[in-house]
Amino acid sequence: MAYLFDHTRAQRIQAFTDSGNVAEQRALEKAGFEREGVLRQAQWRAGGWHDQILYSTLRP
Rank of each mutant, 00 (worst) to 15 (best):
F16H: 01
S56N: 14
R35D: 00
E36T: 12
G48M: 09
S56T: 12
Q14R: 00
V38Y: 08
I53Y: 10
A31T: 13
S19H: 06
G32P: 06
R59E: 00
V38R: 15
Q52T: 05
R40Q: 00
Q52R: 13
I53L: 13
V22M: 07
I13N: 09
H7I: 05
L4R: 15
M1N: 10
E36M: 13
L4K: 15
A23G: 01
Q52L: 15
L54K: 15
A42Q: 06
L4I: 12
H50T: 02
E34L: 11
R26G: 14
L39M: 09
N21I: 14
V38H: 03
I13H: 05
R9S: 09
L4D: 00
A27K: 12
G37V: 10
I13C: 07
A15T: 00
F33D: 01
R12K: 11
N21W: 15
G20Q: 10
A27Y: 12
F5K: 15
G48Y: 11
L54E: 12
A15I: 06
P60W: 07
L39D: 00
Y3K: 15
R26F: 05
E34I: 09
S19A: 13
E29C: 06
A15K: 00
E24F: 08
Y55L: 09
Q25G: 08
F33V: 06
S19Y: 02
R26P: 00
L4M: 08
F5S: 14
V22S: 10
T17H: 09
I13P: 01
